[in-house]
Design a protein around this nucleic acid. Structure first.
Lengths: 158, 158
DNA sequence: TTCCTATGATTGCGGACGCAAGGACTCTAG
DNA sequence: CTAGAGTCCTTGCGTCCGCAATCATAGGAA
């Protein structure tokens, strides 16, 4: 009795639960497809894509990690795999010997292009099945706000 | 070189990438907090929550798996942990001896309530920092469409 | 009854990934 | 030069979780 404190659903909590569901659903399906058709995980794919868009097709590991939201160790191991497959190479930085660039190889570009063909189609099918164009755009915008780095750099209190 | 095919960003692809980022960002932070403050993972928490809302506070493992989008084995192992901690118990089904219910214990309810206090606050802080109320509601609705079960029949050919 | 198929659950195996510790290097201060 | 602090990356270890195989049970057909 007197559970009035009502821990029930606030909008944010409900939306977060829905985010978890939507992510898990979309991700599992697409990851399985990408893996079976091209031998890449979603993270592999995202990394290849970021590299393809980067100037000189190279990025420091730290920056790559931040872009795909992976830990430092996560990036190291993910790149180990892509290196073994020949899709990326290590590049040195002349001005700072601590940094190791991840550099997309020609094979990596080819692999990405190959994977993109079907992956893009699957993503679009998944979205088109449930949302119209305006909704997709709207969703992208809202998620963008949610996922972007800390708004005021340091939160108010510090 | 006729790369005109332009594999660049369609709206759906960009939105999907943003979903990955937003999920990873939100999830990592909240999971770490929940784990350090209460020793529960986000999945643990979601499971406890679903059980708390279920009639008689019990659910078949299959149904639970579907609700939180986990595989059958994932649920088994997650529940192993919650059982070991005393938060759920196994319940038999008289009419079908294959099924094993997951039943929330009193300790489980207490744990959930305890965890909810801070978790809900963290979730709301995260959302409130970046979105206003209308946006949160809108986001929830769009994600709901994305995450819901297959609309028509799902994959055609199979 | 026996057989066949479908469903619920568990287990072996392996992959992905985070945390914490450690190594390598850079920069600044003394 | 040496000391100390900060940054970039890697490695050891542990956890989460999916897939495929397996077992037990259920329900229908012969």
């Amino acid at each position: 009795m007197s559970t009035q404190g009502s821990l029930t659903e606030t909008a944010a909590v409900a939306t977060f639960a829905t985010l978890l569901r939507a992510h898990a659903t979309a991700t599992r399906k697409l990851n399985a497809l990408l893996l079976s058709e091209h031998g890449l995980t979603l993270s592999d794919y995202e990394v290849l894509l970021r590299l393809a868009h980067a100037p000189e097709r190279r990025l420091r590991r730290v920056d790559l990690a931040e872009q795909v939201v992976l830990s430092a160790s996560g990036i190291t191991r993910l790149l180990d795999g892509l290196e073994a497959a020949g899709y990326v190479e290590r590049g040195e930085c002349p001005s700072d010997r601590r940094v190791v660039y991840a550099v997309l190889t020609e094979a990596g570009r080819a692999k990405l292009r190959e994977a993109q063909r079907s992956h893009v189609a699957h993503v679009e099918a998944l979205f088109a099945e449930r949302l119209d164009d305006a909704e997709v755009a709207q969703l992208g915008e809202l998620l963008g706000k949610l996922g972007e780095g800390p708004p005021g750099a340091c939160v108010a209190d510090g």
